[in-house]
């Protein structure tokens, strides 16, 4: 049982590392956010789950599950708020970008603020 938990923890930490590598390598804010949000969410879930099933004898599975639920619900919300704010300020997308509907729509109805 302890070995299973250790291996799940190792996989989770690999996902955390890949998320950090994505934040480091991607070319602009939005792509960084993609890597940062997804990989760190699953990485944290696996890391916490692996640690808690490796140490079943302490009986604090409740607090770990609260932490996992909290990460699942708040991580997308904070990244959504950050993406919206950075598009509002006008941070440019990378040169590889194909299209930008939001900018087009904002120019079309310029009078009303989003």
């Amino acid at each position: 049982m302890e070995l299973t938990g250790a291996i799940i923890t190792l996989i989770g930490s690999l996902f955390l590392f890949l998320g950090a590598l994505g934040i480091f390598r991607m070319p602009d804010v939005y792509n960084r956010m993609q890597a940062g949000t997804k990989a760190t969410t699953l990485g944290t879930i696996l890391f916490l789950f692996g640690i808690s099933i490796g140490h079943l004898e302490c009986g604090c599975f409740g607090k770990i599950s609260i932490l996992i639920l909290f990460v699942i619900f708040t991580n997308p919300v904070s990244s959504n708020a950050l993406a919206r704010a950075s598009h509002y300020v006008g941070i440019k997308l990378t040169d590889k970008t194909v299209k930008d509907d939001l900018k087009k729509d904002n120019i079309e109805n310029k009078g009303e603020k989003i």
């Binding site: 991607m26 939005y30 997308l93 590889k96 970008t97 194909v98 299209k99 930008d100 939001l102 729509d105």
Partner: peptide, 10 residues
């Protein structure tokens, strides 16, 4: 090579 092809769609 970082294969991305990003864009904002509606």
């Amino acid at each position: 090579k970082l294969p991305i092809n990003p864009g904002i769609v509606k």
